[in-house]
């Protein structure tokens, strides 16, 4: 998994980077809420210069789906 994305998720979800892998679940238990989605849109724009749609990000259920979304829009 991309280190930049790991860093983004660890910062937004307030969790140790080492714990984030492809199967990491993006759900309410892991602090994945509407504010987290907004922060991720903004940080992906900063890090990758990609403006993803918030609704697409909100549909991602795991870190790897988010990774795929970034690759598909790169």
């Amino acid at each position: 998994m991309d280190d930049k994305l790991k860093k983004i998720l660890s910062e937004v979800l307030e969790i140790d980077e080492a714990k984030i892998d492809k199967s990491y679940e993006l759900d309410a238990e892991n602090n994945w809420d509407s504010l987290a989605v907004l922060s991720v849109i903004s940080m992906i724009d900063d890090e990758y210069s990609i403006e993803l749609d918030g609704d697409d990000i909100a549909l991602c259920e795991t870190a790897s789906e988010l990774q795929d979304l970034i690759i598909a829009n790169s």
């Binding site: 509407s34 907004l38 993803l52 749609d53 918030g54 609704d55 990000i57």
Partner: peptide, 8 residues
């Protein structure tokens, strides 16, 4: 409000 869509 769909905050994601408005923000985007």
């Amino acid at each position: 409000m769909n905050g994601n869509a408005i923000y985007t």
